[in-house]
Amino acid sequence: MAEEKLVESLIYAKPESLYPVGTHYCPGCTHGVAHRLIAEVIDELGVREETIGVAPVGCAVFAYNYFNMDFAEAAHGRAPAMATGIKRVSPDKIVFTYQGDGDLASIGMAEIIHAAARGENITVIFINNANYGMTGGQMAPTTLPGQKTTSSPLGRDVEMHGFPIRVAELLSQLDGAVYVVRRSLHSVANIRKAKKAIRQAFEVQQQGLGFSMVELLSSCPINWGLPPVEALQWIEDHMLPAYPLGDYKVHPAIAKKPTR
Protein backbone atom coordinates (compact mmCIF):
# COMPACT_ATOMS: atom_id res chain seq x y z
CA MET A 1 0.00 0.00 0.00
CA ALA A 2 1.38 3.35 -1.01
CA GLU A 3 2.37 5.79 1.71
CA GLU A 4 -0.32 8.36 2.08
CA LYS A 5 0.99 11.89 2.21
CA LEU A 6 0.40 13.41 5.62
CA VAL A 7 0.34 17.09 6.44
CA GLU A 8 0.36 18.74 9.84
CA SER A 9 -2.95 20.41 10.50
CA LEU A 10 -3.86 22.83 13.28
CA ILE A 11 -6.96 21.20 14.75
CA TYR A 12 -7.45 23.29 17.86
CA ALA A 13 -6.47 26.80 18.90
CA LYS A 14 -7.86 29.53 21.11
CA PRO A 15 -11.35 30.45 19.82
CA GLU A 16 -11.78 33.58 17.74
CA SER A 17 -14.39 34.85 20.20
CA LEU A 18 -11.67 35.28 22.84
CA TYR A 19 -9.04 37.99 22.57
CA PRO A 20 -5.48 36.58 22.46
CA VAL A 21 -4.71 37.93 25.90
CA GLY A 22 -4.11 36.43 29.32
CA THR A 23 -6.80 36.61 31.98
CA HIS A 24 -6.57 37.85 35.55
CA TYR A 25 -8.11 34.64 36.90
CA CYS A 26 -6.13 32.61 39.43
CA PRO A 27 -4.22 29.59 38.09
CA GLY A 28 -6.56 26.64 37.59
CA CYS A 29 -9.77 28.64 38.01
CA THR A 30 -12.52 27.18 35.85
CA HIS A 31 -13.81 30.62 34.92
CA GLY A 32 -11.35 30.29 32.06
CA VAL A 33 -12.91 26.99 30.97
CA ALA A 34 -16.39 28.54 31.04
CA HIS A 35 -15.17 31.50 28.96
CA ARG A 36 -13.62 29.18 26.42
CA LEU A 37 -16.74 26.99 26.10
CA ILE A 38 -18.95 30.03 25.51
CA ALA A 39 -16.48 31.37 22.94
CA GLU A 40 -16.31 28.01 21.15
CA VAL A 41 -20.10 27.78 21.00
CA ILE A 42 -20.41 31.33 19.63
CA ASP A 43 -17.74 30.53 17.02
CA GLU A 44 -19.52 27.33 16.03
CA LEU A 45 -22.88 29.08 15.73
CA GLY A 46 -21.21 31.88 13.75
CA VAL A 47 -22.96 34.60 15.73
CA ARG A 48 -20.01 36.55 17.13
CA GLU A 49 -20.96 39.72 15.26
CA GLU A 50 -24.56 39.44 16.50
CA THR A 51 -23.81 38.66 20.15
CA ILE A 52 -23.93 41.09 23.06
CA GLY A 53 -22.72 39.90 26.45
CA VAL A 54 -23.43 41.40 29.84
CA ALA A 55 -20.66 41.16 32.42
CA PRO A 56 -21.39 40.91 36.14
CA VAL A 57 -19.69 42.24 39.22
CA GLY A 58 -17.44 39.59 40.69
CA CYS A 59 -14.38 37.79 39.40
CA ALA A 60 -15.79 37.94 35.86
CA VAL A 61 -16.15 41.74 36.00
CA PHE A 62 -13.44 42.03 33.32
CA ALA A 63 -15.08 39.49 30.99
CA TYR A 64 -15.44 42.26 28.40
CA ASN A 65 -11.63 42.37 28.17
CA TYR A 66 -11.56 38.71 27.17
CA PHE A 67 -14.60 38.16 24.94
CA ASN A 68 -14.03 39.45 21.41
CA MET A 69 -17.58 40.82 20.94
CA ASP A 70 -19.84 43.59 22.12
CA PHE A 71 -20.20 43.71 25.88
CA ALA A 72 -21.93 45.77 28.54
CA GLU A 73 -21.10 45.94 32.24
CA ALA A 74 -24.04 45.81 34.64
CA ALA A 75 -24.38 47.00 38.20
CA HIS A 76 -23.99 44.24 40.78
CA GLY A 77 -26.64 41.58 40.18
CA ARG A 78 -28.45 43.58 37.52
CA ALA A 79 -27.12 41.78 34.47
CA PRO A 80 -30.52 40.12 33.71
CA ALA A 81 -32.22 43.53 33.85
CA MET A 82 -29.65 45.05 31.50
CA ALA A 83 -29.86 42.04 29.20
CA THR A 84 -33.65 42.41 29.18
CA GLY A 85 -33.31 45.97 27.93
CA ILE A 86 -30.72 45.11 25.30
CA LYS A 87 -32.75 42.15 24.03
CA ARG A 88 -36.01 44.11 23.85
CA VAL A 89 -34.37 46.96 21.94
CA SER A 90 -32.42 44.60 19.65
CA PRO A 91 -34.44 41.37 19.48
CA ASP A 92 -32.34 40.13 16.57
CA LYS A 93 -29.18 40.02 18.71
CA ILE A 94 -28.00 37.10 20.82
CA VAL A 95 -27.83 38.39 24.40
CA PHE A 96 -26.24 36.51 27.26
CA THR A 97 -25.22 37.28 30.81
CA TYR A 98 -22.28 35.74 32.63
CA GLN A 99 -22.82 35.81 36.38
CA GLY A 100 -21.32 34.34 39.51
CA ASP A 101 -23.18 33.13 42.56
CA GLY A 102 -22.62 36.22 44.67
CA ASP A 103 -23.93 38.33 41.80
CA LEU A 104 -26.85 36.18 40.66
CA ALA A 105 -27.95 34.33 43.78
CA SER A 106 -27.53 37.09 46.35
CA ILE A 107 -27.85 40.74 45.38
CA GLY A 108 -29.29 39.88 41.95
CA MET A 109 -31.84 37.28 43.07
CA ALA A 110 -34.83 39.53 42.32
CA GLU A 111 -33.55 40.36 38.84
CA ILE A 112 -32.88 36.76 37.82
CA ILE A 113 -36.19 35.44 39.15
CA HIS A 114 -38.26 38.11 37.44
CA ALA A 115 -36.29 37.86 34.19
CA ALA A 116 -37.02 34.12 34.21
CA ALA A 117 -40.66 34.65 35.21
CA ARG A 118 -41.14 37.13 32.36
CA GLY A 119 -39.63 34.58 30.00
CA GLU A 120 -37.08 37.04 28.68
CA ASN A 121 -35.42 35.56 25.62
CA ILE A 122 -31.90 35.71 27.03
CA THR A 123 -29.26 33.16 28.03
CA VAL A 124 -27.72 33.17 31.49
CA ILE A 125 -24.45 31.42 32.26
CA PHE A 126 -24.32 30.99 36.04
CA ILE A 127 -20.99 30.14 37.68
CA ASN A 128 -21.50 28.44 41.05
CA ASN A 129 -18.25 28.21 43.04
CA ALA A 130 -19.81 28.26 46.53
CA ASN A 131 -18.25 31.53 47.65
CA TYR A 132 -17.59 35.17 46.81
CA GLY A 133 -14.34 34.76 44.87
CA MET A 134 -13.47 38.34 43.98
CA THR A 135 -13.68 39.80 47.46
CA GLY A 136 -11.69 37.06 49.18
CA GLY A 137 -13.84 33.97 49.63
CA GLN A 138 -16.69 35.10 51.85
CA MET A 139 -19.82 33.03 52.42
CA ALA A 140 -22.26 33.15 49.50
CA PRO A 141 -25.87 31.94 49.22
CA THR A 142 -24.46 28.81 47.58
CA THR A 143 -21.89 28.02 50.30
CA LEU A 144 -22.35 24.46 51.53
CA PRO A 145 -23.37 23.69 55.13
CA GLY A 146 -20.20 23.35 57.19
CA GLN A 147 -18.01 24.93 54.52
CA LYS A 148 -15.37 27.25 55.96
CA THR A 149 -15.08 30.67 54.34
CA THR A 150 -13.45 33.89 55.45
CA SER A 151 -16.78 35.08 56.86
CA SER A 152 -17.79 31.70 58.29
CA PRO A 153 -14.46 30.53 59.76
CA LEU A 154 -16.15 27.80 61.80
CA GLY A 155 -18.07 26.55 58.80
CA ARG A 156 -21.51 27.55 57.55
CA ASP A 157 -23.94 27.00 60.41
CA VAL A 158 -27.41 26.47 58.95
CA GLU A 159 -29.01 27.47 62.27
CA MET A 160 -27.48 30.91 61.97
CA HIS A 161 -26.80 31.38 58.23
CA GLY A 162 -29.56 29.39 56.62
CA PHE A 163 -29.34 26.85 53.84
CA PRO A 164 -27.72 27.08 50.40
CA ILE A 165 -29.91 28.06 47.45
CA ARG A 166 -30.20 25.69 44.51
CA VAL A 167 -30.72 28.14 41.69
CA ALA A 168 -31.39 25.72 38.85
CA GLU A 169 -34.15 23.96 40.80
CA LEU A 170 -35.57 27.32 41.86
CA LEU A 171 -35.77 28.82 38.38
CA SER A 172 -37.09 25.61 36.84
CA GLN A 173 -40.36 26.22 38.72
CA LEU A 174 -41.06 29.35 36.68
CA ASP A 175 -43.21 29.06 33.59
CA GLY A 176 -41.11 31.59 31.66
CA ALA A 177 -37.95 29.51 31.92
CA VAL A 178 -37.66 26.99 29.09
CA TYR A 179 -34.15 25.57 29.46
CA VAL A 180 -32.62 25.26 32.92
CA VAL A 181 -29.80 22.77 33.51
CA ARG A 182 -26.87 22.22 35.83
CA ARG A 183 -23.48 21.02 34.62
CA SER A 184 -20.01 20.83 36.15
CA LEU A 185 -16.51 21.75 34.97
CA HIS A 186 -14.57 19.32 37.15
CA SER A 187 -13.60 16.75 34.55
CA VAL A 188 -13.12 16.39 30.82
CA ALA A 189 -16.35 14.43 30.34
CA ASN A 190 -18.32 17.02 32.29
CA ILE A 191 -16.71 19.88 30.36
CA ARG A 192 -17.91 18.27 27.13
CA LYS A 193 -21.44 18.00 28.55
CA ALA A 194 -21.29 21.59 29.72
CA LYS A 195 -20.41 22.77 26.24
CA LYS A 196 -23.36 20.91 24.75
CA ALA A 197 -25.65 22.52 27.30
CA ILE A 198 -24.30 26.00 26.56
CA ARG A 199 -24.84 25.42 22.87
CA GLN A 200 -28.38 24.21 23.54
CA ALA A 201 -29.07 27.31 25.63
CA PHE A 202 -27.96 29.63 22.83
CA GLU A 203 -30.02 27.66 20.32
CA VAL A 204 -33.06 28.02 22.57
CA GLN A 205 -32.58 31.76 22.39
CA GLN A 206 -32.09 31.67 18.62
CA GLN A 207 -35.39 29.84 18.31
CA GLY A 208 -37.06 32.48 20.47
CA LEU A 209 -38.38 29.97 22.99
CA GLY A 210 -37.62 32.00 26.11
CA PHE A 211 -35.35 32.16 29.13
CA SER A 212 -32.43 29.75 29.29
CA MET A 213 -29.88 29.22 32.05
CA VAL A 214 -26.87 26.92 32.42
CA GLU A 215 -25.52 26.58 35.96
CA LEU A 216 -21.88 25.50 36.00
CA LEU A 217 -20.25 24.09 39.13
CA SER A 218 -16.88 25.77 39.19
CA SER A 219 -13.72 25.68 41.26
CA CYS A 220 -12.17 28.46 43.34
CA PRO A 221 -8.76 27.00 44.23
CA ILE A 222 -7.29 30.05 45.97
CA ASN A 223 -10.25 30.79 48.24
CA TRP A 224 -10.91 27.14 48.96
CA GLY A 225 -7.21 26.82 49.92
CA LEU A 226 -6.63 23.90 47.56
CA PRO A 227 -4.29 23.28 44.61
CA PRO A 228 -6.21 23.40 41.28
CA VAL A 229 -6.22 19.62 40.81
CA GLU A 230 -7.55 19.00 44.34
CA ALA A 231 -10.13 21.77 43.88
CA LEU A 232 -11.66 19.83 40.98
CA GLN A 233 -11.82 16.77 43.23
CA TRP A 234 -13.51 18.91 45.89
CA ILE A 235 -16.27 19.74 43.40
CA GLU A 236 -16.85 16.05 42.82
CA ASP A 237 -16.72 15.12 46.51
CA HIS A 238 -18.66 17.99 48.06
CA MET A 239 -20.57 20.03 45.48
CA LEU A 240 -22.05 17.26 43.35
CA PRO A 241 -24.01 15.70 46.26
CA ALA A 242 -25.41 19.11 47.20
CA TYR A 243 -25.98 20.33 43.63
CA PRO A 244 -27.06 17.34 41.52
CA LEU A 245 -26.30 17.67 37.82
CA GLY A 246 -29.17 17.37 35.44
CA ASP A 247 -31.80 18.90 33.18
CA TYR A 248 -34.29 20.69 35.41
CA LYS A 249 -36.43 22.10 32.67
CA VAL A 250 -36.29 21.45 28.95
CA HIS A 251 -38.80 22.93 26.53
CA PRO A 252 -40.79 20.24 24.70
CA ALA A 253 -39.60 21.67 21.37
CA ILE A 254 -36.03 20.61 22.14
CA ALA A 255 -36.65 17.78 24.61
CA LYS A 256 -36.39 15.19 21.85
CA LYS A 257 -32.68 15.91 21.58
CA PRO A 258 -31.38 15.37 25.11
CA THR A 259 -27.98 16.89 25.74
CA ARG A 260 -26.82 14.33 28.25
Binding site: V7, E8, S9, L10, I11, A13
Partner: peptide, 8 residues
Protein backbone atom coordinates in the same frame (compact mmCIF):
# COMPACT_ATOMS: atom_id res chain seq x y z
CA UNK B 1 -2.88 24.55 20.49
CA UNK B 2 -3.19 21.09 18.96
CA UNK B 3 -1.55 19.90 15.75
CA UNK B 4 -2.27 16.56 14.17
CA UNK B 5 -0.83 14.82 11.12
CA UNK B 6 -3.66 14.05 8.75
CA UNK B 7 -3.94 12.91 5.12
CA UNK B 8 -3.54 15.90 2.83
Amino acid sequence: SIYRWVPA
